[in-house]
Amino acid sequence: MTDATGTVAPTAPPDPGPRTTAAPEPARLGLAGRLVDSQFSPIVFTIVLLVLLLWIGSLVSDPFVFPPLDRIAGSVWQVLTEQWGDMALTLVRFAAALAAAMVFGWALGLLMGAFRRTIGRFVNPLVAVVQAVPALSWVLLAILWMEVVETRIAFVTFMIAFPFFVIAVYEGIRDMDKDVLEAIEQFRPSRLQVLRILLLPQSVVNVIMTFRATAAMTLKLMVFAELIAADSGIGHRLQVAQSNFRVDAILAWTLLLVVANFLILWATDRVEKLALKWRAEAIVR
């Protein structure tokens, strides 16, 4: 092999090729070790502990304050068979409002990032003001401003959630790797091409992370909004249960909300794994 000047160069060894990560040989574990190592063990442990605490609570206190397990289970069953419509209504409201907040926030964040000197500079303080308004203020204003319950709930949820998406996408673009931008700009793309080829795919990470971080909070705030401003949904049912001194019903709804939160996080995890499969995750040993 000769180089450009005709000098004989030593033969280069082949490139090491694609990176592969060899999985370490799993150590042989006993039954107890396998139980501790199982991915389901922490979940089972948490459920058992919670049931145990509820049972002990019902033993040591008045059933009116801490109902027995069978009554809580009965309430869960009642919710699932007779009041599932309220649960479905809350989840539909949640999905619609969060999707609207995500799409609007994503689009606005991209526009702010692509036109930073104009739209970005002027809209950023407005978004910061919207984000600083307390959730309770949005709820009270929605009651006074709007008659239709669905509009109130959608408005409150949207106003709470969308600034998080805008700020995440905008800041993500501001923190973008300038070197990568320079590499793309060598081909002299239009502003629209930069948006489509670079900014939009890059912001997917920020949107998914924001969704993960805000989904649980948004659901809780939405139930809170329903409690004050709606005559249907989980929040309304909680308000009715509280009026009727039904601690068992409150616990049943709470339990279902916790399960819904876990399912939302699980679904987000699946979407994240699919959409961000290109990422190399660092594992701290």
């Binding site: 070197d179 990568v180 793309i184 890059q202 290109w278």
Partner: peptide
């Protein structure tokens, strides 16, 4: 056409799509 000190590839694109990005533009 320019190649830099570091590769500066789009991490979400495969090698094939990274090579094609200039032609796409």
């Amino acid at each position: 056409g320019m190649a830099f000190q570091t590769p500066r590839l789009l991490p979400w694109r495969t090698a094939l799509d990274n090579v094609a990005v200039g032609m796409e533009i």
